[in-house]
C-alpha cells in the first residue's frame, strides 16, 4: 500500500500545477499513526522529491494508544509539528460503546507525553450527542479536555450512519439515538464551554486558541486546491473534485498497472458558489459578499434579499454588508441556512 501511495504521489505531482508551493500536509483518514517510521519516512521522502514545499503545518492523525514516548519522538524527528489525537471521550463506558481501543487514562497520558515531546500544536477530537439521560458526562468531558489545555479542539456530534454497527443497532431498536433537541443542547454547552475557556469557534466544529487554528483545514473552507492521496482520498484543483477509488485492493491493482483510478466531478460556477456558501458560512470569517460579486458576479444580498432579511430578523444571520455570518443560534442550523442561500 505504501509503495502504491508513493507511486500515486509521483504520478500526480503535476496535479497542483507543479510550481505551486505546498504549505501544509495532513496525514489522516484512518489511522496513519499505525504506519512504521520507515513507511512514514518513505512517503515524506517521495513528497520531498516530487513537490515544491514550503511547509507551514505538517499534521498527523493519531490514536491515544499509539502515542508511546518512542513513537512521539519519531514523529517529531520525521518533521511532524502538529498532532490530532482521536480522544472522542474521557468516559470509559462511552469509549467501549464506540468500540475504541484506548482507555480514558491513555488519552490523558498521550496528551502529556506529546507535550513533553515538544508538540506545541495539539488538537483533540471529542464526540457529543451520546444518548445519556442528562448532560453531566458531556460537561465532565469538556472540563477534562479544557484542563489539558490543548491549543485546538474539534468536536462532532455523534451521527448514526446506515450499514454500521450503530446503524444496525438503531434499526433494531437496541440503541435509541439522542433527540435533535438533546444534540442541540450539547452543542450549546460546547459553545459556551469553549467561549469561556478562550477557544475561538473559527468553524462550526473547530475551536482553537489564538495562533492554533488549523491552517490545512481552513484552506478547504477557503476554496484552495488540494491533492488527496490514497484510497478514497479527494482532491480539488479549483474546478474539479476528484475522488479516488475507495476499495483498497482495486486501488493497489490499478496503480500496479501505472493507472490512476479516480472519479472526477466537474463543478459548474453555480456548484462552486454553493460550495463556497456552504463552507464559508461555517467559519468565523463568514461568506464574503465582495468575493462572490467579483469572482462570480453574484449579488447574494440582492438575489436572496427576502431570505437574508428573514434570517436576520430571526437572529440566525448577521449582515454587515461585506459579509454574512451565522449567529450562535444560526450555527445550529448551518445546513438549513446554507441551503436556503444556495443559488
Amino acid at each position: 500500500m505504501v509503495q502504491m501511495i508513493n507511486k500515486e504521489l509521483s504520478l500526480r505531482k503535476d496535479y497542483l500545477q507543479g510550481n505551486t508551493q505546498i504549505k501544509t500536509i495532513y496525514f489522516g483518514g484512518g489511522t496513519p499513526s499505525l504506519l512504521s517510521d520507515s513507511q512514514l519516512d518513505s512517503i515524506l521522502n517521495t513528497i520531498h522529491r516530487n513537490y515544491n514545499l514550503a511547509i507551514e503545518e505538517l499534521t498527523i492523525e493519531t490514536n491515544p494508544d499509539d502515542l508511546s514516548q518512542k513513537k512521539l519522538k519519531s514523529l517529531k524527528r520525521l518533521g511532524f509539528d502538529r498532532l490530532s489525537i482521536g480522544i472522542q471521550s474521557f468516559q470509559e463506558d462511552i469509549l467501549k460503546f464506540y468500540n475504541r481501543a484506548h482507555q480514558a487514562s491513555e488519552s490523558l497520558q498521550a496528551i502529556s507525553l506529546a507535550k513533553d515531546a515538544g508538540f506545541s500544536k495539539l488538537s483533540i477530537d471529542l464526540i457529543y450527542g451520546f444518548p445519556n439521560p442528562d448532560h453531566r458526562k458531556w460537561e465532565q468531558d469538556l472540563a477534562i479536555a479544557i484542563a489539558q489545555d490543548p491549543g485546538h479542539i474539534s468536536s462532532y456530534c455523534l451521527t448514526i450512519e446506515p450499514k454500521t454497527a450503530l446503524g444496525n443497532w438503531a434499526d433494531k431498536g437496541k440503541f435509541q439515538p439522542a433527540s435533535e433537541d438533546f444534540g442541540a443542547e450539547q452543542f450549546e454547552i460546547l459553545q459556551t464551554a469553549m467561549q469561556t475557556s478562550g477557544y475561538i469557534q473559527y468553524e462550526i466544529s473547530n475551536f482553537g486558541k489564538e495562533g492554533h487554528f488549523a491552517i490545512h483545514n481552513t484552506n478547504y473552507w477557503r476554496g484552495i486546491p488540494y491533492l488527496g492521496i490514497g484510497p478514497s482520498a479527494h482532491s480539488f484543483d479549483g474546478n474539479e473534485r476528484g475522488a479516488n477509488i475507495s476499495n483498497n485492493n482495486k486501488y493497489i491493482e490499478s496503480l500496479k498497472a501505472d493507472k490512476l483510478s479516480f472519479e472526477v466531478d466537474h463543478l459548474t460556477p453555480e456548484d462552486l458558489v454553493n460550495e463556497y456558501i456552504l463552507t464559508s458560512l461555517r467559519t468565523i470569517w463568514g461568506t464574503d459578499l465582495h468575493y462572490l460579486l467579483q469572482t462570480y458576479q453574484i449579488d447574494l444580498l440582492q438575489d436572496k434579499s427576502y431570505m437574508i432579511q428573514k434570517l436576520n430578523e430571526e437572529k440566525l444571520l448577521e449582515i454587515d454588508y461585506t459579509s454574512l455570518k451565522l449567529t450562535t443560534k444560526g450555527k445550529l442550523l448551518a445546513d438549513s441556512i446554507a441551503s436556503a442561500l444556495f443559488i
Binding site: A184, I204, S205, F236, T279, K331
Partner: peptide, 9 residues
Amino acid sequence: KNVLAKCYG
C-alpha cells in the same frame, strides 16, 4: 439543529 459536523476536503 440541522448541521452536519464534519466538512473537510
